[in-house]
């Protein structure tokens, strides 16, 4: 539905287009069934950053305090990229792994289901 206007076309500006992020792209990463971390977090990241840097540097900066985090076996993690299961190549860049601007990456950690298995 187009937005109704008094005259002309509704002025529409993409406020978060990729060119506004100083060479970075936005990536959201959420950890399934760990809702004590209240949301997926947003990160401005270089598209050429290797995917492995996400698990080694970026995610620990936010998720490390969670008691489950230290127990994650990254080789067993199940990944979802924009709703599709995928297997990231840790050595390749975000871009070459298909991670685009405003992509949502979700991961599941089988066997680690939050504090006392409650999804927290």
């Amino acid at each position: 539905m187009t937005v109704k206007c008094i005259q002309g076309e509704y002025p529409s500006v993409h406020m978060d287009s990729v060119d506004r992020f100083h060479g970075n792209q936005l990536v959201y990463v959420g950890w399934d069934h760990h809702t004590s971390i209240c949301t997926a977090n947003a990160y401005p990241l270089p598209p050429d950053m290797p995917f492995g840097a996400l698990t080694e540097a970026v995610l620990p900066s936010v998720l490390a305090p969670h008691p489950d985090f230290a127990h994650i076996d990254w080789s067993k993690v199940e990944w979802l990229l924009d709703g599709q299961t995928f297997t990231p190549d840790m050595a390749k860049s975000l871009k070459d792994n298909g991670v685009g601007h405003k992509s949502l990456i979700r991961f599941k950690t089988p066997g680690l289901n939050g504090y006392q298995g409650t999804g927290n």
Binding site: G30, D32, H33, T39, D82, H101, K102, L104, G119
Partner: peptide
């Protein structure tokens, strides 16, 4: 599934909106 965050996404003019 009350302990799983809900995610919805739309595409508009080539950009994702969550």
């Amino acid at each position: 599934d009350p302990m799983q965050i809900a995610y919805r996404v739309s595409e508009y003019q080539g950009e994702k909106f969550h």
